[in-house]
Design a protein around this nucleic acid. Structure first.
Length: 811
RNA sequence: GCAGCCGUGGCGGAAUUGGCAGACGCACCAGACUUAGGAUCUGGCGCCUUCGGGUGUGGGAGUUCGACUCUCCCCGGCUGUACCA
């Protein structure tokens, strides 16, 4: 016998499908633009339809957004609450490689399963607006946006060091590499040089940074984006090379004031100057070092981090401030991907340079007072020494003076550097959007005419990549090659777009999913505007959320959208952990399957339990007993309304119980406020308190009991609809008005004041809640225990905080 | 290392313009109903206690009539990031 059967449950297994069918057939949640109503756009991060189906983590965010959507509808808002599928991506392609099943087949099957599961939860999505990123009518517009970027000069092809993942047979973006391994699949990656399409996200670096300030997002996510963009003010400085009049080494530094202390220079092993300036007698050592560095994965480099290695090139640079000859080394602690890939080393005032200088016996010159350079580099502030025209200045003044001097001398200037790199946009995969560009035999690039979009993904027989750095599309010669009207042969781009492309703008497509003249119908865009509330996982902090902001700003500049930021408010739901407090995973065997939970306890129990577990944004362990507690609560609600004979409880009548009235108004007040603050766990607590009070009351006032159903229905919509119907209500529950409360009736008539004497609560005193301070003091003096505690003592202080506490200080 | 978040009963968690610590739920204990209880209802439930009370929100100090809440130092955990010049 199942747990549910044992507990004589209310008939969730019958009523849940019944109401899901009702919502679908009556199109209850279909939304249309209505200028008469204020709009509210509440969005979930759409799922990747994996073969595993939904896990219990998905409904956490989806239930939270559903509660907010249902609440806003009852508050009179016109709510846009859509769902869709981010369906391009690697798992379907990997599965195709293993089984030969076309990714489209797998994807369609998984979407059907996800749809079935999502509908079982009773989420109030507008199912007429579903989008699917793999639908040609959808990716037509993904390609269109790409072409706009191309026309704006934000797309370029470059031979750059890229992350290559041998297991995934593809290059990856910086953002997709975590700790030297692929974000998807956790495979090793290495750096190779490859010609790739890049998007110039760096052109938007400042705007992406500044835009964060006005967003209502978790501070941690904003901080992560700020760190990722990594804006850093400094100067670039040109060092002439001794015996190479035509070549310079350009460096970026935040400490131009320490230039007099620069005693050597370091190039990254991949730096293009390395080959040109290395002197013949050092060539062998340099080549060996560069080869070794290239073989090291990034992981190796960081694991070995503390040991500084490097070799001397034999070349010398000239310090622009004093013409001093300083040696040029190469070392892998200088990264080709940051700044100019070269540094001026100031071992006196930079710990990394200090360690390197110590290891190789290089000169260390202090140029600031303070610290002890025999022990370590001094990175703090101080007065300059050994620095000619900077002597006696502090750090900030010296930086300013030096930058001016560099500019005057024409060998440097103030500049801003970013950690953010341009976005590597090519993928060597089949299951993605084809890049709508082609080339002629000479390598000239052309964009496909927008009228001809979508550029369809061609059919293939095999999904294996066509050799290193080539996508499976390169195998299809009659797709790649085509004859133009001029009779010349042209060659299509065979790489595809990364998965982020489709998810970059899906929230706009929901506004007019069937519109075929533009990616979004402009009147719909103006009506729905920004996403008011966006809910999803924190793992997208710097991937999806940064890329989407970038594209959105481009679209804003093009006049396609009317706001320059896409998501006004963001909430990250916390992870749901296994019962053991660990992250759920198949290997740990602690995965909870939502299908089984729904079968045993019903979707309403699961929804409500996940909201009751704790604060929405915190990680929380699953508890089957806790789920049972919520299920019991729903049973208790059911029995308050429906008696053993399936009749409405005769206690529900038009008589008003005074105590219960206060409880009701308190409940409406608290639940309303806590929904606004997205604190569902405490909102549910207050509903429990009200139901507990109902069990103690003799009469249940019918209008209040109807209002409670409305409130319940945003959390547990199926039981809400069923009770609403059984109570004989004819209105559509989902659009009935949210209950109002009377603030005066939400207060207790009497307040039990704690009387605190010298920091300890000694007794309590009941006083009317209307009482003002003088009344309270009087009541206190009349209290029997007052004399006992104050006798023979001097009253130093008597503090009365109305409605809170009375404090006495005695001596 | 750096940044952000967090530390409250046996467990999940309440309480923040500073005002009764432990709401609500789970687990547990007792009672009622019962052939039975893993259903339901009622009550209890931080720790210590000589039953007066004492003590208690990771540890220590401070501000205050009053600190889970504010300030400083330390310890522990989670997440992100990592030679970023």
């Amino acid at each position: 016998m199942s747990d549910a059967a044992k507990t004589r449950s209310y008939p969730f297994a019958e009523i849940e499908p019944k109401w899901q069918k009702f919502w679908e057939e009556e199109q209850i949640f279909k939304s249309t633009e209505d200028p008469a109503k204020p709009k509210y756009y509440i969005l979930d991060m759409f799922p990747y339809p994996s073969g595993n189906g939904l896990h219990v983590g998905h409904p956490e965010g989806y239930t939270a957004s559903d509660i907010l959507a249902r609440y806003r509808r009852m508050k009179g808002y016109n709510v846009l609450h859509p769902i869709g599928f981010d369906a391009f991506g690697l798992p379907a392609e990997t599965y195709a490689l293993q089984t030969g099943t076309h990714p489209r087949i797998t994807t369609e099957k998984n979407i059907r399963n996800f749809t079935r599961q999502l509908k079982m939860f009773g989420f109030s999505y507008d199912w007429s607006r579903v989008v699917n990123t793999t639908d040609p009518e959808y990716y037509r517009w993904t390609q269109w946006i790409f072409l706009q970027l191309y026309k704006q000069g934000l797309v370029y092809e470059a031979e750059t060091p890229v992350w290559w993942c041998e297991d995934l047979k593809s290059v990856l973006a910086n953002e997709e590499v975590v700790n030297g391994r692929s974000e998807r699949g956790d495979y090793p990656v290495k750096r190779i040089m490859l010609k790739q399409w890049m998007l110039k996200i760096t052109a938007y670096a400042d705007r992406l940074l500044e835009g964060l300030d006005k967003l209502d997002w978790p501070e941690s996510i904003k901080e992560m984006q700020r760190n990722w963009i990594g804006r850093s003010e400094g100067a670039k400085i040109c060092f002439a090379l001794d015996e190479h009049n035509d070549r310079f080494i350009e460096v970026f530094t935040t400490r131009s004031d320490t230039l007099f202390g620069a005693t050597y220079m370091v190039l990254a092993p991949e730096h293009p100057l390395v080959k040109r300036i290395t002197v013949p007698e050092r060539r062998k050592a340099v080549d060996e070092y560069c080869e070794k560095a290239a073989l090291k994965s990034d992981l190796d480099r960081t694991e070995l981090s503390k040991e500084k290695t490097g070799v001397f090139t034999g070349a010398y640079a000239l310090n622009p401030v004093n013409g001093k000859k300083i040696p040029v080394w190469i070392a892998d602690y200088v990264l080709i991907s940051y700044g100019t890939g070269a540094i001026m080393a100031v071992p006196g005032h930079d710990q990394r340079d200090w360690e390197f200088a110590k290891a190789f016996g290089l000169e260390i010159i202090p140029v600031l007072e303070g610290g002890n350079i025999r022990e370590s580099a001094f990175e703090g502030d101080g007065l300059h020494i050994n620095s000619a025209f900077l002597d006696g200045l502090s750090k900030d003044d010296a930086i300013r003076k030096m930058n001016t001097w560099l500019k005057d001398q024409g060998c440097g200037e103030r500049t801003i550097n970013y950690k953010l790199r341009d976005w590597l946009f090519s993928r060597q995969r089949y299951w993605g959007e084809p890049i709508p560009l082609y080339k002629d035999a000479d390598g000239n690039v052309y964009a496909i005419n927008e009228e001809k979009l979508p550029l369809l993904l061609p059919e293939v027989d095999k999904f294996e990549p066509a050799g290193a750095g080539q996508s499976p599309l390169a195998n299809i010669r009659d797709w790649v090659e085509f004859k133009g009207k001029d009779g010349k042969t042209y060659y299509r781009e065979t790489h595809t777009m990364p998965q982020w492309a489709g998810s970059n703008w899906y929230y706009l497509r929901y506004m007019s999913p069937d519109y075929d003249k533009a990616l979004v119908y402009s009147a719909a865009e103006r009506y729905w505007g920004q996403v008011d509330f966006y809910i999803g996982g924190a793992e997208h902090a710097v991937l999806h959320l940064l890329y989407a902001r970038f594209w959105h700003k481009v679209l804003y500049d093009l006049g396609v959208v009317s706001h320059d930021e896409p998501f006004q408010k963001l909430l990250n739901q916390g992870l749901i952990l296994g019962t053991d407090g660990e992250k759920m995973s198949k290997s740990r065997g602690n995965v909870v399957n939502p299908d089984e939970v729904i079968k045993e306890y019903g979707a309403d129990s699961l929804r409500m339990y996940e909201m009751f577990m704790g604060p929405i944004d915190r990680a929380k362990p699953w508890s089957t007993e806790g789920l049972g507690g919520i299920h019991r609560f729903l049973n208790r609600i059911w029995r308050i309304y429906v008696d053993e004979n399936e009749e409405i409880n005769p206690q529900i009548c038009n008589k008003l119980d005074n105590t219960l009235e206060i409880s009701f108004h308190k409940m409406v007040k608290t639940v309303t406020e806590h929904i606004e603050q997205v604190r569902f766990n405490t909102a549910i607590s207050q509903m429990m308190i009200f139901i507990n009070d109902c069990y103690k009351a003799e009469f249940l006032y019918r209008p209040h009991m109807l209002d409670f159903i409305k409130i319940l229905s945003v959390f547990a919509p199926h039981i809400g609809e069923e009770l609403w119907q059984r109570m004989g209500s004819k209105d559509v529950l989902s659009y009935s008005a949210w209950p109002l409360y009377d603030p005066e009736k939400a207060k207790d008539e009497m307040i039990e004041y704690p009387v605190q004497i010298n920091g300890k609560v000694r007794f309590k005193i009941n006083i009317s809640s209307e009482a003002v301070e003088t009344d309270i003091r009087e009541a206190l003096k009349d209290h029997e225990k007052y004399a006992f505690y104050t006798e023979g003592k001097q009253i130093l202080k008597c503090i009365v905080i109305p409605r809170k506490i009375i404090t006495l200080v005695l001596k």
